[in-house]
Design a protein around this nucleic acid. Structure first.
Lengths: 346, 346
DNA sequence: CTGAAAGCGCTTACAG
DNA sequence: CTGAAAGCGCTTACAG
């Protein structure tokens, strides 16, 4: 075999094997319509030439890509350099799930303000899109509607696309909020506060809030006694929110935060004011990001199963692409009791 | 304009604009050889049809992809569900750097044992490959040589490809080790231990070890007084290594760990044995992963600048692809003093 | 400044 | 079981 200039093509193999290029193509995709001997010969030559199917050519012909795109968008206010650890964990599980199913993953960060919605599938770079991120849901929804109108294949994490539950994988946030509320009640706490946006601009956080309120009401605590303050999912926002709450003269002995990052910032602010966690204020977070177990005190939190979530996102997107029915998936949250709530022995 | 069945192509635009398809193609790429009026008309129609260039077709024709592949491989022993936070941070900065340069990023996890080396560029899915990961360098090197032989465009983080510094972006690990050693010496520590493989199976860790030894020798402390134990970059390995060191009857008041993950595990093991950090043992890690500031005590560590590293990886790979000379890049490490070394006030 | 034509490397009816 | 041929949707010499 003489070395060829440039990469080998199926024609080179055909020439060397003494068959037609069509046969080579069939053999390489292991078509049952090809004689085993012919196949063996072709495989051997392909291996020798270090031949790889040109994906651009095969995708162009097949009109498909074998690739999924992950669009990760963030609140534009967030520091550029840091990605929310929760999404990073999701990224990990999504990447694994893709590999397992023989798909490639195209990853891209986006600002919510950009025109991210249109391009990946239309330009044939991906068969479908996975959306991941926090941000104002009202802005988000608009893009989602464009995607819907363009019949792009997509799934998203967390927030439901109005009237289309099949496009979403989400945690049971209401249940998560209930778990947090109930647990805090069990610790004998009476005066509650919640950090995180609790409006339809942030449906996930809202559900967490509502879940907690639900638990409190069952225990005879009225919603109007609960202090609530908006916070995006960053440490800084949690820190600031506590200071604001105190400036407003609000007092509380139980604090439920819409995310761990908020909780960690809040704990810092509380400690800076000389308050003890959990003695003075019991704190529960949400997500169970890796740092949660390292904060002081270790953070009690509502865990979201990122492995399952990532897996389901990929599985459902693939089903959508293949026009198969999807399972409606809701991930069940789980409370991880550590020290910040005052329950576990220290 | 009547809506077209399926996606619009450049022929549809040509028909609508009353020009040839060649002209459309030129106009869309903003070729100076096209009349501005014609361009305007074509752009307007393209927008109306929500036209997007088919990347498979254009890549096939241009024989390029506009895509970079990131191969993230891990020690197979590591728990499947967790990715080393340091690499996750790198992933973030690489993704950003790619977007900024108009490239897509294909991400893939690999076991070091797999045949990952060949496919991405050969199959025309990417113009080049970024390699990221820990693992036995001896195994790694072999793959790298294959890549080299195949003339694949690639860059890698950390370990130098024998005789080819241009393919690597690395921290000055030797300097990092020195900083750690010097700092520990300044705290008055005399009896040193190092956790991490210090052989050519792990050149980065080895250099960190050597840097520390170098600092110690300058202070008159001989290398043979230093306790060293292998550990891969996980908490568990750090935890186990401490127990083993104690079982061997080794005692030390200064501990330098080849990574933060090792350090965090080591601190847990020390504390479990009733030893105080930093009073009994001062600990310094390496990487400055996000959890480092949250461990108790907060971890003093040698920071690697992941933003710069990710950026340089992308920049150099792009240069390699375009046959331009690359800058030899070495990232300068920086010591972040927190509490685990006993230096900062608590 | 514009058009007709070739061709990138495959996959897949169609025919035998 | 195999081959000849068309065609996926572009880009880019070549010619005018």
């Amino acid at each position: 075999m003489t070395p060829l200039k440039g990469k080998a093509t199926s024609f080179d193999i055909a020439y060397l094997a003494g068959v037609s290029q069509s046969t080579v193509s069939r053999a390489l995709r292991d078509s049952p319509a090809v004689n085993q001997e012919t196949k063996d010969k072709i495989f051997a030559i392909a291996k020798q030439l270090n031949y790889k199917v040109d994906k651009n050519a095969s995708n162009l012909r097949k009109q498909t890509t074998g690739t999924l795109a992950l669009l990760l968008f963030e609140d534009p206010t967030v520091d550029e350099s840091q990605i929310n650890p929760f999404f990073l964990a999701m990224l990990g599980s999504i990447t694994r799930a893709c590999s397992q199913r023989g798909h490639d993953l195209l990853v891209s960060f986006q600002q919510l303000s950009n025109d991210w919605h249109a391009d990946y599938e239309d330009s044939k770079k991906a068969d479908g899109i996975i959306l991941l991120g926090y941000g104002d849901y009202k802005d988000y929804e608009e893009k989602l509607n464009t995607l819907l109108a363009q019949q792009t294949h997509f799934v998203c994490w967390g927030a439901e696309v109005h009237g289309h539950p099949e496009f979403t994988i989400r945690s049971n946030n209401l249940q998560g909020g209930k778990l947090a509320g109930q647990h805090l009640l069990q610790q004998g706490r009476k005066r509650f506060a919640f950090l995180g946006n609790a409006s339809d601009h942030s449906p996930e956080f809202l559900a967490r809030y509502q879940g907690m309120v639900h638990a409190l009401e069952q225990a005879g605590i009225a919603e109007n006694t609960v202090a609530q303050l908006d916070a995006i999912s960053t440490e800084q926002a949690g820190f600031d929110a506590i200071n604001q709450l105190h400036a407003q003269g609000k007092s509380f002995d139980a604090l439920f935060c819409a995310s761990d990052l908020i909780a960690i910032g809040a704990i810092r602010a509380l400690q800076k004011k000389g308050l003890k966690v959990p003695e003075d204020v019991a704190v529960v977070g949400f997500d169970d990001i890796p740092v949660a177990s390292f904060s002081s005190p270790a953070l009690t939190t509502i865990q979201q199963n990122t492995s399952l979530a990532g897996e389901m996102l990929v599985v459902n997107l693939l089903k959508l692409i293949n026009h198969q029915p999807v399972e409606l998936t809701e991930i069940q949250p789980k409370i991880i009791v550590r020290h910040s709530c005052g329950a576990a022995e220290r």
